[in-house]
């Protein structure tokens, strides 16, 4: 457990004092720093929140944006919703897989990229749309896959 996590837990509980409302804000904040939520992190959060480890695990595993494996420095989400599919998102995903030499759901060996599917990202006017570390990029035609990977983004 990192010392600042105790401060963050206190701040989250002050902002959201009731029920377990502080839990998700705390998980978000720690994941932003750590990149993912390991079993050890989950156990630490459980301790900070005064909750059973199983409870925290059950919450973490419910939500697709809480990651239980190490993530690449750039997490690329490709929207695979219908409007994006109509504009070429499957081809975009295919190009990205080729370019990175990995399959959807995997990370590159050097830890630079993770490639994931996203359900409709509510940006169908930018189809096909992607997110890099949850920042929108789009429209990204399949041929622009390489450019997407070099996109400068804040972590």
């Amino acid at each position: 457990m990192k010392p600042e996590w105790q401060v963050w837990a206190k701040e989250a509980k002050e902002e959201f004092p009731r029920a377990n409302s502080a839990l998700m804000p705390l998980l978000h904040r720690i994941q932003l720093e750590e990149g993912w939520l390991s079993d050890a992190t989950i156990a630490d959060v459980a301790q900070l929140m005064g909750l059973p480890v199983q409870y925290v695990e059950s919450v973490v595993s419910f939500y697709s944006l809480f990651h239980q494996q190490p993530m690449g420095k750039k997490v690329v989400h490709v929207c695979v919703g219908l409007s994006c599919a109509l504009a070429g998102s499957d081809e975009l995903m295919h190009h990205l897989e080729q370019r990175l030499g990995i399959k959807e759901g995997q990370s590159t060996a050097d830890g630079a990229y993770t490639l994931l599917e996203a359900e409709c990202l509510a940006a169908c006017d930018k189809a096909p749309v992607a997110q890099v570390n949850l920042r929108y990029v789009g429209p990204v035609s399949p041929d622009d896959a390489t450019q997407l990977l070099s996109e400068e983004v804040t972590s």
Binding site: E15, F16, R18, A19, N20, S21, A22, L23, M24, P25, L27, H28, S58, V59, F62, Y63, S64, L65, F66, E119
Partner: peptide, 27 residues
């Protein structure tokens, strides 16, 4: 007024699931 972030779950657009999530539970 407070801003609370979900974490990726369509079902949390259903109002009672949203409230569960806002209370720090599975949606």
């Amino acid at each position: 007024l407070k801003v609370y972030r979900g974490a990726g779950a369509y079902i949390c657009g259903e109002e009672s699931a949203l409230l569960e999530s806002l209370e720090g539970k599975r949606g």
